[in-house]
């Protein structure tokens, strides 16, 4: 019951936050000089004043700011995210077409970073001053420090251009035909490089944290007890210590989920991954306010859901939390 109440309160906060995000961004977009009519005319190679005026009146851009804002918020409250000025399509449709691709990329990259990060963290925690440990630390920090687009292009040059292992861009090869598995393998081949690129940023965080908590846990009394019981090193680490060292990592992963989504913008752009990131980038360039706000709305939703899932995951690994709200 208490759990339900806290969840409801959190959902209420989330809605307040969403409205705040929308109002703030709408206002910010409005403050900047110029508008989508300019980018539409750019995409057409120029337009005369008459046409610009007509585009503005068609989309209600000639209305006072508060009227525009009011209309937009009223629409959102009726679950209508509006109509994209630039793409002439309902924003919801535009986003729904892109959302699966982003989710696929973000979730797989997050899982890869998490599992690999924890694994590497544990390995290096077992021999904190060993060569492996230093190597893991170096690689992780390198991935963290290198700009995403640079890592992406380097991977492309190595694995696509020279080795021909993976395709360059997009999510599928439209020239192939076949059953489900053919397409599954095709999407997987397209997914691997962007996934690694995106995961590389977060790998460092998770492996460093996993290493630190693991070292702490390995020094604790119950581990010593387990060891003195005669359990093997492997059993001690993976059965007893790992579970206890996981919760900080999972908490961090939940917090980082929004960062993963923003990281996806760059990765998607480099790999032409047909997700929300590329759409966000193009919409911002085009000043397509309804689309940008729609994407922010959906990203916020995804982050909130991600955080809820984190909570659940934490309760699963840590029995102490289960009784609490």
């Amino acid at each position: 019951m208490q759990f339900l109440q806290t969840t409801l309160i959190r959902i209420f906060y989330a809605i307040v936050l969403l409205v705040a995000v929308l109002v703030l961004n709408f206002s910010l977009m409005h403050l900047a000089p110029g508008d989508v009519a300019d980018t539409i005319s750019q995409s057409m190679g120029g337009a005369d004043q008459e046409l610009l005026d007509r585009i503005r009146s068609d989309y209600g851009l000639d209305q006072p700011f508060l009227v525009q804002l009011g209309r937009y918020i009223a629409g959102v409250l009726q679950f209508d995210l509006g109509f994209s000025f630039f793409y002439n399509q309902p924003v919801t449709k535009l986003i729904m077409e892109r959302l699966p691709a982003t989710l696929l990329l973000v979730v797989t990259a997050q899982l890869l970073a998490l599992f690999l990060g924890v694994f590497l963290g544990v390995i290096s925690a077992r021999k904190p001053n060993g060569l492996t440990s230093h190597f893991v630390t170096f690689m992780a920090l390198f991935g963290y420090a290198a700009p995403v687009f640079w890592t992406g292009i380097l991977l492309l040059i190595g694995f696509s251009l020279h080795l021909h292992w993976f395709p360059v861009a997009g999510m599928r090869d439209v020239t192939i035909s076949g059953g489900f598995w053919v397409h599954f393998v095709d999407v997987l081949r397209h997914l691997i490089l962007p996934m690694i690129t995106l995961a590389s940023i977060f790998l460092a965080l998770y492996s460093r944290l996993a290493r630190a908590t693991m070292m702490e846990v390995l020094g604790s009394d119950y581990v010593r007890t387990a060891k003195s019981k005669g359990l093997s090193q492997r059993q001690v680490v993976y059965k007893h210590a790992l579970k206890n060292s996981l919760s900080p990592v999972i908490t961090l992963a939940g917090l980082q989920f929004s960062a993963v989504i923003s990281g996806a913008v760059l990765v998607e752009t480099v790999f032409s991954w047909p997700g929300l990131g590329t759409l966000a980038f193009q919409s911002i360039i085009a000043r397509d306010t309804p689309t940008i706000l729609g994407i922010l709305f959906f990203s916020a939703l995804v982050v909130i859901v991600g955080n809820l899932l984190t909570d659940i995951a934490l309760r699963l690994v840590d029995p102490r939390l289960r009784g609490r709200s």
């Binding site: 251009l161 021909h164 861009a169 997009g170 480099v270 032409s272 047909p274």
Partner: peptide, 21 residues
Amino acid sequence: KVVMRIISDPAARAIAYENGE
């Protein structure tokens, strides 16, 4: 058939030409 792939990054496009994709 004509396929028009949308690839916005110029460096990725360059690799796609070189690759024969």
